[in-house]
């Protein structure tokens, strides 16, 4: 396999990482029954603050830490407004998405295009020498290796541990979980803030590792958060499937970069290519639930009907039953 292909594949693995953290972070939040719609703004704000802090105090670690804290604070506002004050989750999330983005562009202006720190590549000894697999998976910066572990940990935690079961409980049937002694509100706070922390990590992952630097509104981060939200739905609230969605998105972005150098399609068009695809995939995973589809299917001859309904059922995803519904103890 030639070098160019390997570089492209390695790029997909790398580009998927921030989206992967953000989408799985949102996955945790939504499993608990809340929607944090602020993702797009959170990523941009934490990318800016992580970059600036890392540069000023000369510490990449603090850059990541600050990114995570920014994400956690934004998520805490969403949690307070939705859980304690019972305001619309969409309203607060949407406002924060816009506010955080503008805050980042406003406060980050003096640091635009300044040289800063970045994570260098650390090839893993032995593994990096395996043909094909080595250059694609094991010649990256630390965040990429962290993402491999993270996917597995998130999956195992959510589906194979007691705490994970509790997490599913408060998102599916909070009253039942409450009856069994779970502190639904506290847990929802916890998972919303945990999710925000992970979303916040995605920012410095861009500015310090994957898309190095801060270029204000030209950083190319606007829109990624909305995609991350869609990937959570596409992934059916399952970290493995969500990770798959993130890799698909990484692939599309890489494809854009490749096409840009070989054709003369304007870059803006390539950057927007994932969005029509996002709508299309959302249609695919949702359409199986629509009434008219059932009617059409019922009118079909048996063979295509069985095949079609099997495909639709495989694609279909359903959200946690109490997603977006406030919970009352009484």
């Amino acid at each position: 396999m030639d070098v160019a292909t390997l570089t492209t594949l390695a790029g997909i693995v790398e580009y998927a990482v921030p989206v992967l953290f953000a989408s799985i972070g949102e996955n945790f939040t939504e499993k608990a029954g809340l929607i944090n719609l602020s993702v797009n703004g959170t990523i941009i704000l934490s990318a800016m603050s992580g970059f600036v802090v890392a540069m000023t105090v000369d510490s990449i670690f603090l850059g990541f830490l600050v990114g995570a804290v920014v994400g956690a604070i934004v998520a805490a506002i969403v949690a307070f407004s939705s859980i304690t004050l019972k305001q619309s989750q969409v309203a607060i999330g949407f406002v924060l998405a816009l506010l955080c983005r503008d805050l980042a562009y406003f406060l980050g202006a003096p640091y635009t295009n300044k040289p800063g720190l970045f994570l260098s590549k650390v090839p893993i000894p032995v593994l990096a020498d395996i043909p094909f697999i080595g250059p694609v998976f094991f010649n990256h910066s630390l965040v990429v290796y962290a993402s491999y572990l993270f996917i597995i940990i998130a999956y195992v935690f959510m589906f194979k541990t007691r705490s994970g079961l509790m997490l599913q409980g408060i998102g599916e049937r909070p009253s039942a979980a409450f009856a069994r002694g779970a502190n639904v509100k506290a847990l929802r706070y916890f998972y919303t803030i945990l999710g925000g922390l992970l979303i916040g990590l995605a920012g410095p992952m861009y500015s310090l590792a994957v898309k190095i630097g801060w270029a204000g509104q030209l950083s190319g981060l606007d829109g990624i958060g909305w995609i991350a939200l869609a990937i959570t739905i596409f992934g059916g609230w399952n970290p493995l499937r969500v990770a798959f969605g993130a890799y698909l998105f990484g692939g599309l972005q890489q494809l854009g970069i490749t096409l840009q150098s070989t054709t003369n399609i304007p870059i803006q068009i390539l950057q927007a290519a994932p969005f029509p695809l996002m709508i299309f995939t959302l249609l695919l995973v949702n359409v199986g639930r629509a009434e008219w589809v059932d009617r059409e299917l019922a009118a079909m001859p048996e063979k295509p009907r069985i095949v079609l309904s099997k495909i639709l059922r495989a694609l279909r995803t359903s959200p946690p039953a109490s997603l977006g519904v406030p919970f009352e103890n009484e």
């Binding site: 969409v90 996002m278 709508i279 249609l283 359409v287």
Partner: peptide, 11 residues
């Protein structure tokens, strides 16, 4: 299509 208008609109 069962697609929430928020995501449809954003896309």
């Amino acid at each position: 299509g069962g697609v929430n208008e928020i995501f449809g609109g954003l896309g």
